[in-house]
Design a protein around this nucleic acid. Structure first.
Length: 104
DNA sequence: AATATGACAGAGT
DNA sequence: GACTCTGCCATAT
């Protein structure tokens, strides 16, 4: 059942809101749950309407946090118990998807 | 209708 | 594991 128009935005926000605390899902996973493969489209929705959902629970397939939001996201991961591993780069850490990837 | 943009993914190197 | 290149999808112009 293809989503379209505003429905797409609502669907993305609904899925993100369903991700339980302490777990995360990749952009690709969210898109897949919508029956779409537009990982980038999901990112667009987050950039525009992410303020109303736990956006930090949506991460990249490589375990990296959303571009430009690594610092803010790290606080939530620590507070919710999401396993992260410190690294020496711009983000400063990496999310351990192997342990906290959400699977509906 | 066509082109450009972006909080991306996967395959190849 | 990291990097680069190409493909995808939804919006804005």
């Amino acid at each position: 059942m293809p989503q379209h128009g505003e429905g797409f935005v609502a669907a993305v926000l609904a899925v993100v809101d369903d991700i339980p605390p302490g777990h995360v899902a990749t952009y690709g996973d969210v898109a897949a749950l919508l029956g779409s493969r537009g990982a980038r489209a999901v990112g667009q929705v987050m950039a525009r309407h992410g303020s109303d959902v736990p956006w930090w629970r949506v991460v990249r397939a490589g375990g990296r946090p959303p571009s430009g939001h690594a610092e803010a996201a790290r606080r939530h991961y620590v507070a919710e118990g999401v396993p992260i591993r410190p690294v020496d780069d711009e983000d400063g850490y990496r999310i351990e998807l192997a342990r906290c990837r959400w699977r509906p």
